[in-house]
Amino acid sequence: MNSLLERIIRLRWWILVFLAIIAFTIFAGDFRQDPTTAILAATLRHSTPLVLGALCGMICERSGVINIGIEGQMLMSAFVGFTVTAATSSLYLGVAAGLACGMLMGAALGGLTVSLQGDQIIAGTVLNIFALGLTSFLYTPGETIHSKTPRISVGPLADLPVVGKIFFSNQPLTYVSLLLVAVIWYALFKTTWGLRTRAIGEHPSAAETVGVSVAKMRYLNLIIGGGIAGLAGAYLSLEAVGSFERGMTNGKGFVALAVMIFGRWNPVGAWGAALLFGYTNAIQTQFQFRGWLTGHPQFIGMIPFIVTIVVLAGFVGRARPPAAIGQPYTRE
């Protein structure tokens, strides 16, 4: 009992923030159920690419590689996913192509940072600029797809008031992101893969001396991470928007990194952080709907970016990042 109480006290600020957000949401929703539910459902939707991006960043950083190229991985995958769907009319093939493209981009980051030992930040930036240039060149305006990924209701759960609409009536990649949060949390802290991943991110030579191949593990994790970023890209073009636009990631890959840091390199923490960021997006729509600040849409547009900066400035250093990130590892 005591520990529960302690936990509540430790988390008191978060609980207050949570309650304040709920209260504000109800206020913004004009004290009616439907708009309030809509804001919360939109929060979950907006958080999907962020939580996927953050999971990608986390798997990479936990194994000691900074992935600043999430933005580029997402953008490229959004493009490839869209193009494949436009060509084949299959959303599933599109998502699979996005996933594969992300994995390829992850492998590319591995090539630059693990095999060639390049600076990780520069390597990620190269991916970003490369993805922006290549997608701009290859994209032909006017291509369309017929539909977005369909909304799937989870049986009777979807009929529950409020909660049903928020959690059990979503599009497939949103469910996938929730599932991945749980799976990656379990894998990271309970399995051999997780132990080895954490070890190579903290002290790679220690792992190497007990026979764990740092290079192989980093490649594996960068590819897994890239795949998850690929899903985020597919989400953007196939689930959220239903088309591709130049630079459509619009900084989400970077916001995802802030989400990861805010969530203290923990999948569950990152999910919570992503919800907070998703909320800043979701509330914008409601602001416009209510006619608040409509004369100054630019200020509403700034919110997610300013929140990101505030989070970075306020929370970095409170949690310890993996000790070995940013440094190439060589045995000799």
Partner: peptide
């Protein structure tokens, strides 16, 4: 505050675009 410049500068690009507009 130890906030890494790569993220903050990129975020400030978006803020600047909005503010300038």
């Amino acid at each position: 505050r130890g906030a890494h410049e790569v993220i903050t500068t990129i975020m400030l690009n978006f803020v600047a675009a909005n503010a300038a507009e």
